[in-house]
Nucleic acid binder design. Structure first.
Lengths: 348, 348
DNA sequence: GCCTGCCGTGAGAGCGCTCTCTGGAGACAT
DNA sequence: ATGTCTCCAGAGAGCGCTCTCACGGCAGGC
């Protein structure tokens, strides 16, 4: 990079000299200017402007023990996490909220194993004030690592650890998967469907389990043959659909645990000559713009506001960080469950 | 967060005391241990282990002027950038490379305007050693901002600024859009197609222009009516396809500048009763797994290795950073154009 | 007009680390 | 045995900032 011998950035000292005041005064002005008289403030501001002074974050962090950065940790054992827009939307929400509070977003991707260890070291290293963790699977060690590192954490999605105490102390943000699933199934019922099947997500993921539970809430009688497990990919959805058609050739309603799987199911239904929604009504989950609106026919689905969930995660963590400095014990913060909403299009 | 009065993290000093050596020696050991005798190294290592010492990054940065962090700046005026997996894949490649060299990834999302200014301040603040910038449109100010901030930068995709000098000094990574487009069109030609049309991307983006140029390289004679501009969305692809069908009802080959647009085009062709590839052959661009393999029929397309491009961006920047410290002028680094490859499936 | 009290400013001590510089100890040649 | 050279460890000076503390000046009360 052709940078002219990188003009050494001005320091507090330089600004102080220029404004004819002490370092302390400049520091006060830079940090809000409370307790400094008007004319002086103006003089310092001018000096800052002229010199193009920007505070050195490292020096600041060294003394304040605050670095204005939040880690977003993503466990990505499969690449699925990255081929589906779910993650990206959530990150966008997080980024918005963080930026609004002048916090930086440090992205940590981990494939498990040695990577996890690296992440653990990083968190322990005190590089960040807090962490936002996405771990897909129930048994993931990431949240535990963060806890050990003593880093305040908010989890994306309901964690499923057995220890109730750990569970209580863990903040998370999730959508109302179970309620959303109930709405989906009720929609199929309202359309008069009699033989409704479910394409579930991988059942080691809490979201999948919750959606299945919602399905069962409304249809307590249905047996295992009416349920097939997919893997949140179109292929998985397609295969599940094939199995279900084999087992229940007369099915007339499908609730898929994700839009992406629903799109695979639609393909299979079409190739089998079943008309949607006339012969078989299909409801998805997520309301992923790029998927739900562009299937054929457009998908009726359960909408969750993914970006908002990201925003809320960041907000919750920021609050936790603030109240942490309270000397008097635990803050009254709790996890958040966001509502879902049925979006009716053509498939059901 | 219920953290026990956060046990103060051990410092170098503490480790030194425990190992019975000086701070300097501990520092040497922590940083590789060169020039320290074996037994001492072992003693220090043991002390580090026992105390669970982790270096304080802020303090280190303060003196080394290196912070081991790279900014990834994403201009995201539309949300498109985030609903399409392109970005995510690239980030994954970047993350891999950065992690392998113990650099952190700071994600900066900007919607333009005031956000850009915030990003500029951040870069100027010296929080990061370098920046990787994705700006979609030709006129985006981000690269200029980075240059002003004096931060070494690598751009994702060929930048299009008029000043040839600025262009020469700018490092970027892009795929061979033009060559890939030529391959796509040649494929259609090889299939004996006579009336080939092009669905272009937004022509304010270099990638779109390059792909169009490639199309014209092979088919210099085709007129404007055979080309329609889309916007890299399925809808845009569909609308472009409709226009083209109107203008050239006898078309028998389509080269779409992206898989996503191709998927929209396929929809329209199907609904018009044209068989693919029998009546109309279609070639896309990108080889986006979640799209190309799951269209109906699966898409013949031009593959670009997006993740690899991300990796190369990070690598290039890291190299630039290293050689920057060379006193003797500019390093012999240059931008990278990655090859593309035609992937033949069923649509052409 | 002097003392008390307060407000606004400056001085200075670190935060935890790196890195240069110095000095002591040992190896080797004289 | 003496001198020279090399190598390794320690002392100490900052990096740029914040924050406590002390002090000087000015208002108000007596």
């Amino acid at each position: 990079m052709p940078v002219p011998p990188s003009a050494p950035r001005p320091t507090l000292e330089a600004v102080a000299a220029r404004a004819g005041v002490s370092r302390a005064t400049v520091s006060r002005v830079v940090n809000g200017g409370a307790g400094v008289r008007g004319p002086l403030v103006a003089r310092v501001r001018a000096a800052v402007e002229e010199l193009g002074y920007v505070p050195n974050q490292a020096a600041r962090t060294l003394v304040t023990r605050r670095n204005g950065a939040i880690a977003v940790v993503v466990a990505e054992p499969e690449s699925r996490f990255f081929t589906d827009p779910f993650f990206a939307q959530q990150v966008r929400g997080i980024s918005r909220e963080l930026a609004a509070h002048d916090n930086q977003l440090v992205l940590l991707l981990t494939g498990g194993g040695a990577d996890h260890e690296r992440v653990g070291r990083y968190l322990t290293g005190g590089h960040v004030d807090g962490a936002l963790i996405f771990s897909l699977h129930a048994d993931d060690s990431l949240p535990v690592i963060a806890r050990k590192a003593g880093v305040p954490t908010v989890i994306g999605g309901r964690p499923t650890w057995p220890d109730p105490d750990a569970r209580r102390r863990t903040l998370y943000v999730d959508c109302d998967n179970r309620g959303g699933a109930r709405d989906a199934v009720r929609r199929l019922l309202a359309l008069g469907r009699q033989r409704i099947v479910h394409i579930a997500g991988p059942l080691d993921q809490p979201a999948s389990v919750d959606r299945l539970d919602g399905f069962r809430d409304v249809l307590p009688g249905v047996g295992a043959p009416m349920i097939a497990e997919g893997d949140f990919t179109p292929e998985g959805g397609a295969r599940a659909m094939e199995r279900l058609l084999e087992r229940s050739p007369d099915l007339d309603g499908v609730f898929a645990a994700s839009d992406v799987m629903a799109s695979g199911a639609l393909r299979v239904l079409r190739s089998r000559g079943r008309r949607v929604p006339d012969d078989v009504a299909v409801v998805g989950f997520d309301d992923m713009v790029s998927v739900a609106e562009w299937t054929d026919p457009p998908l009726t689905t359960v909408r969750q506001d993914i970006e908002e969930m990201g925003r809320l995660m960041a907000q919750l963590l920021l609050h936790a960080l603030e109240s942490e400095s309270d000397p008097d014990g635990l803050p009254a913060l709790s996890s958040i469950i966001t509502p879902t909403r049925l979006v009716v299009r053509d498939s059901a």
